[in-house]
Design a protein around this nucleic acid. Structure first.
Lengths: 130, 130
DNA sequence: ATAAGGCTTCCAGTCACTGGAAGGTCAAGC
DNA sequence: GCTTGACCTTCCAGTGACTGGAAGCCTTAT
C-alpha cells in the first residue's frame, strides 16, 4: 500500500504520516524503489494515532498509548491514569476558555459597534488595574 | 524604569517584554548604558497587551487592537467585529474540547483501571472503524 | 519519448514564547 | 580600587505538531 492510499483510508495527510515515521511512531518497510510499503499493522497504528490525536492526546501520550496497546500484559490502570490526567488538562482548558468567553461576551455586548469611537472593549483592555 | 520593574508591575516575563519590542509592539527608548528605559506609556501598552493576550487574542489581533486603541477616531464597530470573530473561535474551541471531554470521560469511566490488561480505552482507540 | 502524477528527501516556516550562553553595567562592601 | 553578585544586553536554539515548497527520482499511459 502506498502512502496516498493510506492517507485516504486513515484520513491523515501524507505529510503527517511521513512525520510520524520520522519521529518513530511507525516504521513501514520500503519497496525496492524506496517507496514506503505500508502493511495492515501500519494502517491500524495510524488509525489508532488519528483517534488518539483527535481526543487531544499529545504525541508523547500517543507514543505511550501505542506501547501500552502493543503490550498484551499492560495494566489498564496505566492507561486510565494517563487518560484521566489528560481529561483533567482538557477540563482546565475548557474552564479557561469559558472564562475568556464570558468576559469577551460581556464586552462585546456592551459595545455599540457603530462608527463612534467610544468602545468599552478597548476601555477595559486599557484600564490601569495594575 | 528598568525591565525587571516593568516585568513585576505588568506580571509579564522580561523575556516576553523583549520579544514584544522585537516584533514592534512597543518601542521603549534606551538609556546611555543601553538599558531599556520604559516610560509610563510603554507600561500601559504592556498592560493592555497582557490583558488582550489573557483573553486569547493572537499577537496580530493585539497589534490591531493596540492601533485602534491609539487611534482616537476609530469606529467601535472595528473593535467589536474583531472581538466577535475571536469570540466565535473561542466558542468553537470550547465545543471541540467538550466533545473530547465527553468521549474521554465515558472511556475513563468504562475502564476498570486495575492491574488487568483489559481496557476499553485502548479498545476504542484501536477499533478499526475505518 | 514524453507527460502527468506519485513518490522521495530536505529545508524552512508556523506561533508565542522560553532557555541558555556570553558578555557589559551597576551598587555595595571591604 | 577591587571583587562580588545582581542586573542588563544580544544572539542562538528549541518547543509541538505539523505544513509548504523545492528538487529530483519512479511509474504509468499515451
Amino acid at each position: 500500500m502506498n502512502i496516498s492510499e493510506v492517507a485516504t483510508r486513515t484520513r491523515l495527510p501524507a505529510k503527517t504520516i511521513r512525520y510520524y515515521e520520522e519521529i518513530g511512531l511507525i516504521a513501514p518497510p520500503r519497496d525496492v524503489n524506496g517507496y514506503r510499503a505500508f502493511r495492515e499493522t501500519d494502517m491500524h497504528k495510524l488509525a489508532f494515532l488519528g483517534r488518539a490525536r483527535a481526543l487531544g492526546f499529545t504525541i508523547e501520550d500517543c507514543r505511550t498509548l501505542l506501547a501500552l496497546w502493543e503490550d498484551q500484559g499492560r495494566a489498564s490502570a496505566d492507561v486510565r491514569s494517563l487518560a484521566q490526567d489528560h481529561l483533567g488538562r482538557i477540563e482546565a482548558k475548557i474552564t479557561d476558555l469559558e472564562e475568556m468567553r464570558d468576559t469577551l461576551s460581556s464586552l462585546v455586548h456592551a459595545c455599540a459597534g457603530d462608527d463612534r469611537p467610544d468602545c468599552p472593549i478597548l476601555k477595559s483592555l486599557g484600564d490601569a488595574t495594575l
